[in-house]
Amino acid sequence: MAIEIVVGLPHLSEGPILQRARAMGVPTLISANCLSRWKKRDGWREWSGWRLGTLANARGLASLDLDSGGYVAMSRYNGIPWSVDEYMALAASYPFRRFASLDYCTEEGVARDREEVLDRISRTIRANRDCRMRAADLGIADRLMPVIQGRLPSDFERCLDALPVSMKPGTVIGIGSMCRRPLFGTEGLIAVFEHLDRILPQGVKTHGFGVKGDCLPYLRGLEHRICSLDSQAFGIAARYDANKRGVPKTDRLVADHMERWTLRQMARRSEPARALQGELALDPGERFHPDPWERAIAQARHEIRALIEDGSLEHDEITSGWVQEWAADIYREGRFD
């Protein structure tokens, strides 16, 4: 079965973009950030809830999925401005085909080093658990798409192993931090999907967030595992086109690029399959720190992550200052594993 191309919409305002999406009959996705309401208080921009009225404009679309908007939230606001309960209220307000769990992306622009990548994996695990519990309370758990995060292929496996998800056939797992990832290499997109194909149970599918269209011929051999990909890359092409020609970036221009981009991706699904690379070296594991203070820092991070994952700490509570205080106690007490 061919990989489904999901078109990421920049907004749900009535106009050329929505009209074109309806006419093409393509599955679509919207980010929670695009449905946010903001206000200024004391000179600061604050999140103030959801613009639920715009969801009425989704009528006539073939389908609509919801993404939590984690990368935008981190890059613009340095954190997710809405709580699990607030996000799940949004998920329950419309019959989305699928809605993604909250997650913490691991792109280099957000996670500066290996320790932060591991921190964000732990937060993603906890956020998934919280979303699943709330979804069950709301009666919408059947439409929740868990999301796994990581930098190395083995990171995604660790995240997957910790999720409270029944891996039955038909389950769809969202794969995050894909849109800025190279195609090849030990941390490349192909290496991640290939590794997941090796470890996922039969019948469990994946959705790739922000996967580049030129990857499709390389993923042909994984069509049994990848059910869908989404992207809003046409928006970048529309901005470049408008700047080059010195014209406004109107919704009509964006709609034209959206249609051309979608048709191009659909055509790429019929291109001859290209050979997948063999899986390369995986995560070498945690580094050994001979210096006692570095060992204490590493152990403090490990203990804090474990507490986040089992629910003893909130997934947004960890700070660098707290890690150092925790490490200081380990260092003074000589409490090394």
Score class of each variant (00 low, 15 high):
I304Q: 01
R132L: 15
D155W: 14
M145I: 07
E187K: 11
A91W: 00
R269G: 02
D67I: 02
S154H: 14
A91D: 01
D310Q: 14
I330C: 01
W38C: 01
C159P: 04
A298N: 08
S36F: 11
G70H: 01
M74E: 12
P81Y: 03
S83D: 09
L61W: 06
A238K: 03
D42E: 13
T262E: 09
A62Y: 08
L282W: 03
M145P: 00
I308P: 05
L196I: 05
W293I: 12
L263Q: 12
M167N: 04
V247P: 06
K39N: 08
S63L: 07
D65L: 13
D241T: 06
S68W: 08
G185Y: 13
S228T: 10
A92W: 03
L52W: 06
A136E: 14
V247C: 02
G188L: 06
S31V: 07
A73F: 11
N33V: 15
D256I: 13
D214F: 13
W322Y: 14
L35W: 01
R180W: 11
R98W: 06
Y104C: 09
C159L: 02
G8S: 14
G70D: 00
P292V: 06
L196Y: 01
D291L: 15
Q149L: 05
A62C: 06
N128V: 06
L55T: 11
E279Y: 12
R252G: 09
C215G: 04
L55G: 00
R132E: 12
I121G: 03
A255S: 03
G69V: 03
E333Y: 12
R220G: 14
R239T: 15
A58I: 13
L222I: 01
Q299C: 02
E271Y: 14
G213R: 06
L152Y: 12
L219I: 07
D291Y: 12
A273N: 08
R98L: 11
M167D: 07
D67H: 05
E14G: 08
F96D: 00
G139M: 13
A298V: 10
P284W: 13
S166T: 15
R335Y: 05
D214M: 11
R112V: 13
D337I: 14
P153W: 00
S228L: 05
L253D: 02
M133R: 14
L280T: 15
R134F: 10
A328H: 15
G109S: 15
K39C: 12
E14W: 11
R264W: 04
S122Q: 07
A242R: 02
R76M: 15
V192R: 04
L35N: 13
S101G: 08
M145Y: 09
R225T: 02
P201G: 09
L280W: 07
M145Q: 12
W44N: 10
Y218I: 02
L216I: 15
C159F: 05
I226M: 07
L118H: 01
